[in-house]
Each structure stands twice: as C-alpha cells, then as structure tokens.
C-alpha cells in the first residue's frame, strides 16, 4: 500500500511535469492548468506516503538517506505550492516540478525498508535538525530553479518586466534557505555536544554544511551591498545547486564520517 502512494507520487509528478512542458511549448492553458492539478494529486500522494510511513515507523520519517530525500522533495513541493497559491508565482513551477520529481526519483533508487531508529538518532533535536535541513536545501533548490528561469528569460529579453520579481525571489529564497541552514547547523551543534561531547568535530558533513553556509552568506552579503544582482545572482543560484546536492548526497556516499549512518547502502553503489 505504501508503495502505491510512493510510486503514484513519482508518476503523477512526472505526468504533471510532461503536461506542463507541452502546455508551455504549445501555449495551451488547458494543459498547463491540468498539469498543476496532476502535480497537486502527486503532492497529495507524496504527503500521504510520508504520513503513512511515519505512522508505520512510529517516528518522523527522516532517519536515512531515502527518507531524507523523500522529505527534501516534499519540502520543494510545499514551498512551490505556497509560492503558487499565496504569492501567485507561476514562473517557478516548471523547473521546480522537475527538481521535486528528480529528488523523489533519486529516493526511488535507494532501499525503502523501515528500520528502527538507532540510539544516536533518538533525540529531541532529530526533527528540527533534519527538518530544517530539508527545507533549507529545498529553498536553495528553488532559488536555483528561479535562477534557471531568470537566465532563460534574460537571454530572450533583457528588459522583461518579470525579471526584477524573479531576481527578488531568488534573493528571498536564498535568504530563507540561509536562515534555515543556520538553524540546522546550530541545532546540529547542540545535538553533537549532547551525543559526541563536542559541538563541532570537522566531520565532512559539518564541513560541507559550513561551506554551503559560507557560499550563500557571501552571495547575500554581495547582494545586500548591491554588488551581485540580476543575472549574476541568477547564475550564482544555479551554480550553487551542485554544492547543495554534494552536501546532501555526495558527502554521505563518498566521504565516510559521523553522518554516514544517514546512508543505507545505496543500490546505485
């Protein structure tokens, strides 16, 4: 039953994405609207999957690479839905759908068995540390998605009136992502002090979280002093996405460290 919702979510995201693409190419509003409805159905399946898995596991499902990927993808969808309904932002949808689907698909390549939470992860900080990380990464991914959109529009027309809005949202998404990443690192440090006796161990995951934090902090600093706006900011948002993905996937799978329990042997390896 769980798998029905899991693969149903992936399938609906994919279908929504394809319809959206053709809706945009053929300029058919009906297709574009239908694609959103299908995406929302996928989002509902995704949400039900997470809730059911959580009930079955008896905990919030964020204990390993698979569960984090599902949560990460869900975070992208949640922010996308918020931007769509609350702020009426349409331009971000296509690329954001692709990102949500791609991360969800990555999760499908990982083992899905439910394991008991290991003692090291049984902490009051578990949900807030990992949850804030998922939403921080999701914000950065959406900033990257907006960056791609900005660059594409900018190539066609440098004076397009949508550009200032997209530029502003790249900045806001990065700012929210940085704030959440700071919360992630701070909570992680407090947790590490309780678990390992030291709030910082220079573990590869910590180091890459710090690298990501510094990169985005530099970006925002330059932005606030007006030295990086427009297309430069958009390029930064896009180029920084691989760093975020490396912090999420690369560090856990390539470099062994204290956070390696996040990985249950991947079928990719």
């Amino acid at each position: 039953m769980l798998d029905v919702f899991f693969f149903g979510g992936i399938g609906l995201y994919f279908l929504g994405m394809v319809l959206r693409f053709f809706g945009q190419v053929w300029k058919k509003d009906g297709l574009t609207k239908a694609s959103w409805m299908i995406f929302m159905a996928g989002f509902a399946a995704h949400t039900v999957y997470l809730v059911m898995r959580g009930i079955q596991a008896g905990r919030v499902p964020m204990a390993n690479q698979f569960e984090f990927a599902v949560m990460f993808s869900w975070g992208i969808s949640v922010i996308l839905v918020f931007l769509h309904y609350r702020l009426g932002l349409e331009w971000i949808t296509t690329v954001a759908m692709i990102m949500a689907w791609a991360i969800y698909l990555y999760a499908a390549l990982l083992p899905r068995e439910i394991h008991e939470l290991m003692p090291a992860l049984r902490s009051v900080w578990f949900v807030s540390h990992i949850g804030s990380a998922a939403f921080a990464y999701a914000s950065f991914m959406l900033a990257g998605a907006s960056g791609i959109r900005y660059i594409l529009i900018h190539k066609k027309d440098k004076e397009d009136e949508r550009l200032p809005e997209i530029d502003y949202f790249i900045y806001r998404l990065i700012a929210i992502g940085l704030l959440l990443l700071t919360v992630t690192i701070v909570i992680g440090a407090i947790w590490a002090e309780e678990a390992w006796s030291s709030f910082w161990t220079w573990d590869p995951k910590e180091v890459w979280a710090l690298i990501t934090w510094i990169l985005y902090a530099i970006c925002l600093h330059l932005r606030l002093s007006r030295k990086m706006t427009g297309v430069k900011m958009a390029w930064f948002a896009v180029i920084a996405v691989p760093v975020v993905l490396f912090t999420f996937i690369g560090v856990n799978t390539i470099i062994p460290g204290l956070h390696s329990y996040g990985v249950v042997l991947s079928r990719l390896m």
Partner: peptide
Amino acid sequence: SMTFGVILLGLIILFSVAGSV
C-alpha cells in the same frame, strides 16, 4: 573591507574542501 572579508571566507572554503577530502 568586504573584499578582504570575502577573500578570507574563500580561503576558509578552500581549506575546508581540502580538510574534508
């Protein structure tokens, strides 16, 4: 200056990458 600050942060990133690899 901000330039100096950014240079220093860039160096910290470089050292950190080396330290993680």
